[in-house]
Amino acid sequence: MKVLVPVKRVVDSNVKVRAKADETGVDLANVKMAMNPFDEIAVEEAVRLKEKGVATEVVVVSCGPAICQETLRKALEVGADRAILVDVGDIEVQPLAVAKLLKALVAKEAPQLVIAGKQAIDDDANQVGQMLAALQGWPQAAFASKVEVSDGKARVTREVDGGLETLEVPLPAVITADLRLNEPRYAKLPDVMKAKKKPLDATTPAELGVDVAPRLKTLKVSDPPKRQGGGKVADVADLVNKLKNEAKVI
């Protein structure tokens, strides 16, 4: 069974992001980039499936500028078998476009399972996995915290409001990874050394026959308003009064 894992290059989660002065987007100049943390979890899950003998090959894909090769190489270092870069150049590639690119790759690669991160930490869109499932007409199980694959089915435990829900989906299917699905491993040095020798192919939206022109327009990106200092309440009665009459929450 082949597993396809899309990975996105995003601002490193430790970086404090700032809006550009002209409010057209987030300032990415000289900012450390890394693999989207949910995608790291997705890669880890796919590699574990391979180690369990469930999956036979793990293919990672990134849709973005050529520098996304770095992100793909990180996935190769922790155990993915090969990588595909969809080089979109400098344009902003939006969730629907990514889903369509993945659909085209699914047609070529014929994976039985796509494991994606549930969302990317830069735009927090949380759409690609669901859109891909819809475009493919495949079942989907989003926000997975546990995945078991056997007999052509995946049993997926997902975190929902108020508890855990377990779904069973026939393969092929799309699963999106939540935070507690697993803890990604550290790359081992010998695997870091070998990653460069693993295949990394490049293609383009044109080759895949997908129109990736943006359909959403960003109007403005600004820093969140500065927090105003809070006030102290004199006693419980004062607190209740404020909650009732000022905040109007009780």
Partner: peptide, 22 residues
Amino acid sequence: DTVDADTVDSILEEAAKFAAEQ
């Protein structure tokens, strides 16, 4: 034949992570 510049970069990044987190 052992190592190239990209790999050196990956080694530094992985080591940095291991040193900081572990």
